[in-house]
């Protein structure tokens, strides 16, 4: 009896101390599971299947981080978060990282006490209209009614865009993407606006995609990226460099098919450092030497993940565009691994 009380006190003391000092990395390792905040459901980015297994572009990043830290991409607990609960879930410690198509903005980075660990998808807000309306440019939308999700940054972008172009519009407020699609299909609005990636998915799911066009104008910058808590730089580094490892792997031609071969050692010192054959990059941030190998094996490099979840061969059919490698005219640019 005495012994168990003693142990109980010890455990309690340990827990209190743990809450006070442990880093996120230690927490995750001790727990053996990465708590990853994801969208409650966004086509291509995060979606549960009939058995509750998550997949998607954002989910792949959770898996890569889990593989880098814990060595197993399946050791992830997905916490679905809504637009309202996502940041609180992160700051209150319910999740270790957010991979939830959140736009990197000044106030979120500073005021909301988060750190964005990079950008995994450059999105932007676009418009979809019916083809028979004859509209071919967003500049012709003067006086149009526009379906718009309330409480999102898209609402403010829309107001800014129409104001700066001296045009008027009639907003039709909708609550969710699904409702917006229905309102637009029912003819309640002339145009539907949301992130271009979402528009592409919406159009692809219509019975008559050929009758709808997405206008060429992109009216906002929406750099979507993973976020971590402010103040734990080590953990932020891990998430950031896991993302860079996926991007760099694509640049250097490291794929899930040839990674076992390349991990034995190559002529290219940069690849060797990335895959832990040379140098000690992993241990510098508290990870194993082969952390990047595991991260890349989880779902392939950045290009492979993109192609498998939202790329042109999928029904969503997004082109790489801004998300191509910098060598291909895109914005994906990983700093050097050395």
């Amino acid at each position: 009896m005495k012994k168990s009380v003693f142990f109980g006190t010890l455990v309690a003391a340990g827990l209190t101390a743990g809450f006070a000092s442990a880093t996120t990395l230690e927490d995750v390792k001790a727990r053996g599971v990465l708590n990853c905040g994801v969208n409650t459901g966004l086509v291509g980015f995060a979606a549960p299947d009939a058995n509750g297994n998550w997949s998607g572009f954002d989910v792949a990043l959770c898996k890569a981080v889990a593989a880098a830290v814990l060595g197993d991409p399946s050791k992830v607990k997905y916490v679905p978060t809504t637009g309202q609960t996502r940041f609180t879930a992160l700051t209150s410690g319910e999740v270790d990282m957010l991979a939830r198509n959140s736009t990197w903005t000044f106030s979120r980075d500073t005021d909301l006490k988060m750190d964005f660990a990079g950008v995994n998808y450059y999105d932007g807000q676009g418009f979809m209209v019916r083809k028979d309306s004859g509209i071919t440019s967003a500049k012709e939308l003067d006086g149009a009614s526009v379906c718009i999700q309330t409480g999102t940054t898209t609402e403010m972008n829309l107001a800014d865009y129409f104001k700066s172009n001296n045009m008027t519009y009639q907003p039709i407020a909708v609550d969710s993407n699904a409702e917006g699609e229905q309102q637009y299909l029912a003819g309640a609005c002339d145009a539907y606006t949301t992130d271009a990636s979402g528009l592409a998915a919406t159009r692809a799911a219509y019975a008559d995609p050929e009758n709808h066009i997405i206008l060429p104008e992109i009216i906002s910058k929406e750099p979507l990226g993973p976020a971590v808590r402010h103040g734990d730089s080590q953990w932020g580094d891990i998430v950031r460099w896991t993302l860079f490892a996926l991007i760099a792997a694509e640049e250097y031609g490291v794929t899930s098919a040839n990674i076992d071969e390349l991990a034995k050692g190559t002529e290219n010192p940069e690849i060797n450092r990335l895959l832990g054959v040379e140098g000690d990059l992993g241990p510098m941030t508290g990870l194993e030497k082969d952390w990047a190998v595991k991260a890349i094996k989880a779902g392939g490099n950045y290009g492979e993940i993109f192609a498998a979840t939202i790329g042109e061969s999928t029904p969503i059919g997004l082109a790489r565009g801004l998300n191509a490698q910098w060598t291909q005219g895109g914005l994906m640019y990983a700093p050097p691994f050395r």
Binding site: G41, V43, T82, A178
Partner: peptide, 27 residues
């Protein structure tokens, strides 16, 4: 409770099902 991120049957579950491209567009 959909507003606090729990999967109630009326909105959250359909939204998560529609996030699967196979069923996007069902309403």
């Amino acid at each position: 409770v959909t507003f606090v991120g729990l999967f109630e049957p009326l909105k959250s579950i359909p939204d998560s099902i529609r996030a699967d491209i196979s069923w996007k567009g069902t309403y």
